[in-house]
């Protein structure tokens, strides 16, 4: 029997334990809310995690894991955890929790069927997930800083125009005579 067939059989118990382990990273008083509120609009964080880990798990069990697809599923969870109260390691530790769950839930069958090598291969897939996750996490954090910079720019854009402190050059028209100062009133500028 193949490891993936065993994992498929044990899918619901593995996902349940994996979900519990992810939730343990949140304040104890809030775990029941994240776990029990099933409306995805009332509980977007819990819903993103429960949906996300199932899709990631399915992708791991597929014959060939598609990095683009699994990246999208990882993004749905990591995007949330990247702005929550976690260090980078804490935010991504949930990926590795799956190793622990699989070993604990399927160890007997793995030993009985001599599937240690398959387990190593499966765990290597999880390592691949972690590398994809690092990239996603960094993109999220970079986005936060980009948004901060954009807010500063957007809130001053018109004021800078008004103060004649900035000009925009049109894409077309290489002749300097054709260079148009968008939105700058020349009469104002020459006053």
């Amino acid at each position: 029997m193949e490891l993936k067939s065993i994992l498929l059989q044990k899918k619901s118990v593995i996902l349940k334990r994996w979900f519990d382990m992810v939730l343990e990273t949140y304040p104890a008083d809030s775990v029941s809310f994240f776990k029990n509120q099933k409306d995805k609009f009332a509980n977007p964080v819990g819903a993103a995690i429960v949906e996300g880990i199932e899709k990631i798990f399915n992708e791991l069990l597929a014959r060939e894991m598609n990095p683009g697809t699994v990246g999208m599923f990882l993004d749905n969870i990591i995007r949330i955890r990247a702005v929550q109260d976690f260090t980078p390691a804490e935010a991504l530790a949930f990926i590795f929790s799956l190793k622990k769950v699989v070993r604990e839930e399927a160890w007997a069958e793995i030993q009985a069927n001599g599937l240690t090598e398959e387990l190593f291969a499966f765990e290597s897939q999880i390592d691949d997930l972690s590398l994809i996750s690092f990239n996603i996490y960094m993109k999220c954090r970079e986005k936060i800083y980009e948004i901060k910079a954009n807010e500063a720019r957007d809130s001053t854009f018109r004021l800078l125009q008004r103060a004649n402190l900035m000009t925009e050059i049109q894409e077309q028209g290489p002749d300097p005579e054709d260079v148009k100062l968008i939105n700058i009133k020349r009469k104002e500028a020459t006053k």
Binding site: Y26, P27, D29, S30, F33, F34, Q37, A42, N43, P44, V45, Q84, D85
Partner: peptide
Amino acid sequence: CADKCHFYIGTGDP
């Protein structure tokens, strides 16, 4: 009211 606040929903901070 406990689970109706967007900050609670987003942070899980009691």
